[in-house]
Amino acid sequence: MDFKTLVFYILSAIMVFAALRVITSRNPVHAALFLVLSFVTAGGIWLLLAAEFLAIVLVMVYVGAVMVLFLFVVMMLDINLDRLREGFWSYLPVGALIGILLVVEMALVLGGRYFGLEAMPEPPAVQAGYSNTRELGRLLYTDYVYPFELASLLLLVAMVVAVSLTLRKRKGLRQVNPSDQVAVKRGDRVELVSMPAEKE
């Protein structure tokens, strides 16, 4: 077993443990933090596969932004765990079905050689100096430029909708306008008057 395999097993063990704790821990904040841990270890596993761009972006986007906002919300909520556990038995059949489906899918992929998947050629070995980031960028902006632009348009629509859903004007709100405040001159606030000195 070489060093790379050892690292893979360590990372996988941490990831499986963290993923289990996400669904078993009683405290939602702990669960969210375990999700962060499993993201980071997944990034590590992707690094082992020489997919450094995906690994770094996973950490940057999911750990650095999405999960921070997620934690922000989870910490602010007062979650009653007993209420959450109420429907456990009634949801169990559906959940179990989805779980079994996932296991079957993973088994199909992992046991691919029993289903004739070995006909697929193995990807060529990575050469020294190969940059995953450069390759991804080249493919995204040449061969796959239309799907890529479509996806970005979809995201833009989602963004605009999210903004317009939360944009509400309330009446009678006394709000300050920062640009007016910044643009204020001394003359608007202070008036210097010259008065003759008064005698008693």
Partner: peptide, 25 residues
């Protein structure tokens, strides 16, 4: 001397906020 040094730096610095959030909570 990694190729994606700038990205790696952004990824690592984006994790800095966790210390503060976890400590506060």
């Amino acid at each position: 001397n990694v190729n994606a040094g700038l990205l790696l730096l952004l990824a690592i610095t984006s994790m800095e906020v966790y210390g503060v959030i976890i400590a506060g909570w």
